[in-house]
Simulated scan of single mutants.
Amino acid sequence: MADASNDDRPVYQAACHCGTVQFSVRLTDGVRTARRCNCSLCRRRGAVAVSANLDDISVTQGQEALTLYQFHTREAKHYFCSKCGIYTFHQRRSAPDQYGVNVACIEGMSPFDFPEVIVSEGRIHPKDRAGGGSRVAGWLRYESNPE
Rank of each mutant, 00 (worst) to 15 (best):
P10G: 08
C16A: 11
G138P: 12
I124P: 05
S58E: 07
R74H: 13
I86R: 04
I118C: 01
S134W: 08
P10S: 15
C18E: 11
S82V: 04
V11I: 15
E143Q: 11
Y79H: 11
K127M: 12
T60F: 09
A14Q: 13
Y87G: 02
V59I: 15
V31C: 01
N6K: 15
A76W: 02
T60C: 00
A49L: 06
T20L: 13
A47Q: 03
Q91D: 01
L66Y: 08
H78P: 10
N145M: 14
R9F: 05
S51Y: 04
V11C: 10
H78V: 03
H90L: 04
E121W: 05
A34M: 01
C16T: 14
Y79E: 08
D97E: 13
L41I: 15
G132Q: 09
F80T: 08
A65I: 03
Q70N: 15
I106S: 03
R26L: 09
G108S: 08
E121Y: 03
R123I: 15
D7A: 02
A2H: 05
F23A: 00
G133T: 10
T60D: 12
S40L: 13
Q22F: 11
D113G: 05
D128S: 13
G19R: 08
Q98H: 15
P115F: 12
S94F: 06
P146M: 05
